[in-house]
Design a protein around this nucleic acid. Structure first.
Lengths: 238, 238
DNA sequence: CAGTGGTCTAGACCACAGT
DNA sequence: CTGTGGTCTAGACCACTGA
């Protein structure tokens, strides 16, 4: 079973992204032109462009015909509306994750906006919850459902301060590729969740229900998030 | 001054998208393969793939290696988190727009998360507000700021039930291409906005602050949205 | 004007799904 | 196995920007 190599456009994307996040290229700077990047990294233009497409879609650069690719200001909020996992609060070194409820098996929850397959219903669900803190302040409470299939030793893993996506990718070769979500504002949720988030009663919170698609056919990850947006807005790009 | 033709991949994207929305291709159906599409529309594969990329990014299809492109279920919420304007509530024929405050000139509002340029500060802002209703029920209150520049006769235009984006594109050649937004949950906003949205006091609402990028350099559109998500969640893809 | 990004072609080879 | 989508090459011409 051979692992497919990381595509070249993806590698270039990650290099450039790192340079931007690390400040090698700063806000307002022009990136090297596409032709320059071709020579620098020994790639052809379509490949370079595909890397730049990714950077554009994620909001790291803006391209202008006749001018070049300009590095965009890094976002100030929490980048939760896009892919790459909740843990990606760009530029935040003070993001902490604590496991509140360790993985165990549960039945499918009612009143969820996504319909599930028979197969998913049969195997049951791995359930766990985590709390995200920014500078020590609880910000997001994160409830996750994974299909209970083919994930040896998962229940004994430590999810604190680790990206779930990284664990899935490196240990189980599951890559999260895209997803969809429903967002609404609610008044403070159940008492226990309020307590965990340190909320007064009747504080408005964001409520997200999401389904994540993976590279495995019919393997979806579902999650529910409660976000205290009093101090930190969620940030998204489109 | 010649208009640039709509690119072929964009034309194909719109055709396929229409077929999906109209039900020619239904949920779960396989789209014609990329090679078939090449022959059907007399295009090469990279062009066809670029159209499919758009459909994928907007969530209309999922592609599976070795299998094909599968039509995705159409979303049930309001498609406001992605581009194409608020008016694009896919599949909703009962979306109505009413202008509440007609366009006029105002100074820049304080406490906005985006910084503006000197030029923007000088020319001032076109300001107007609109209400979006779904089946007659107010759902979104939409406050818009446009730079007050180069838009002849804009103040006298009727914005009811029309896409602002369409007007900008057809009358002024301004195309909205991307954007960013900050989202938070708040308790009911100012009394007048509550009245417009028909809200009880202390109802939680979604509060969005967005900046939209256009094809004109340094021409941005800013807007603030208040959404009653009691009945309709916002929907997003990533 | 030269250089930039935007579009497009006509191929090639690969990994994966279903038969 | 065949056909699918995923990646990549090596060119071409265009529209736009700034000097």
């Amino acid at each position: 079973m051979s692992l497919r190599a990381t595509p070249q456009y993806r590698q270039l994307y990650e290099k450039l992204r790192k340079h931007i996040v690390d400040g090698v290229y700063r806000e307002g700077d022009l990136l090297p032109s596409e032709n320059e990047l071709c020579h620098l990294y020994n790639l052809t233009r379509p490949t370079v462009r595909k890397a730049l497409d990714l950077l554009t879609n994620e909001g790291f650069i803006k391209r202008h015909q006749g001018l070049g690719s300009i590095v965009h200001k890094l976002p100030k909020g929490i980048g939760i509306l896009s892919i790459s996992g909740t843990t990606t609060a760009i530029g935040r070194k003070d993001l902490e994750t604590r496991t509140i409820i360790r993985p165990h098996i549960v039945p499918w929850p009612e009143d969820f906006p996504f319909s599930i397959s028979e197969h998913e219903k049969e195997v049951g669900w791995m359930y766990f919850t985590r709390l995200r803190l920014l500078s020590g302040i609880p910000v997001i409470y994160d409830i996750t459902y994974l299909p209970n299939i083919n994930l040896p030793r998962f229940t004994s893993r430590n999810l604190d301060n680790k990206s779930l996506f990284d664990i899935l990718r490196t240990s189980y070769r599951i890559e999260v590729r895209s997803g969809e979500q429903y967002i609404k504002a609610i008044n403070a949720p159940e008492k226990d969740i309020c307590d965990i988030l340190g909320l007064e009663p009747d504080v408005p919170v964001l409520h997200l229900q999401r389904r994540l698609d993976t590279n495995r056919l019919n393997f979806y990850i579902y999650s529910i998030l409660y976000c205290n947006t009093d101090e930190h807005s969620l940030y998204g790009i489109f």
